[in-house]
Design a protein around this nucleic acid. Structure first.
Lengths: 136, 136
DNA sequence: ATCAAATTTAGACTTATTCTAATTCAATAC
DNA sequence: GTATTGAATTAGAATAAGTCTAAATTTGAT
């Protein structure tokens, strides 16, 4: 078990088990915003014991609850997971469905005129568009 | 069948049937961003014949496809439907889960610094916060 | 080493959605 | 007006994502 991961989980009050470590480690190693099933497929052979889907769901929910990862919902009905917890938004490639992170600094001069009745906690921007391929 | 609805569906290339009319009419009458099942419950008794869930799903998908309504995805794993097709964003009341529309004009000075590799089609903002209750 | 509490497992269950095959409906041709 | 044809609708089966349950395993504290 990677010590950094163990420390991270402890710091967030999640008891570090091999299953949780391996799932967290995988999420931190990718920017692909995997679904629960993609997480299951990716890590199921990285443990000496069989891995249950229930454990994957339990772990993902526990990690979200503890603030170690977040849920991303850019397409109807699909839940994806993201270990990038810095303030950021998402860009969805409408051709491939790939989701990229947009650091918060790249959204400038955002200003909301909602009136006094609304108290804003946070906001999230999803940008839909195309990624231009580099010229050959 | 309300003539306006019939005309709307025709204009978007959706053949107006009683089922489609009643579903569209319901969606246009509410700002509650209902789920597919909420639509089914709301309209199932408004027809002289039994209504199948399959028809509700088929109709919702056809209406989205035709640009008559849109899908709203503000919470993980839930799909909601919205007949408001003017440019707008969403405010989620974090206490109740209620979703309110934010007209596009209420977001001012939005500016994105993504670089030349990204071609933006459109973007959507979800604001999470509290709605202050009116003083008694 | 023992015990209690927490975690994990396999698989049953639930919920949301799609699929399928049969039936009904609506428009057009005759 | 009736036959034909394609589209829409129906009930229910099938699928997929996620949750629940009961039993087994692991962990941590004595």
């Amino acid at each position: 078990m990677v010590p950094d991961i163990e420390e991270l989980l402890n710091r967030h009050g999640v008891k570090p088990t091999p299953q949780r470590a391996v799932i967290t480690e995988y999420l931190m190693s990718t920017h692909s915003h995997p679904t629960a099933d993609e997480v299951f497929q990716a890590v199921k052979n990285r443990l000496p014991v069989p891995l249950s889907r229930a454990t994957v769901y339990n772990t993902l929910n526990a990690l979200v609850e503890a603030g170690v990862i977040q849920e991303v919902t850019t397409e109807a009905g699909r839940v994806r997971y993201d270990a990038n917890m810095s303030e950021h938004h998402h860009f969805v490639d409408i051709e491939t469905g790939n989701v990229l992170d947009i650091p918060a600094e790249q959204i400038r001069k955002f200003e909301l005129a909602l009136g006094d009745n609304f108290k804003v906690h946070h906001f999230h921007v999803t940008v839909y568009g195309e990624v231009k391929k580099p010229e050959q």
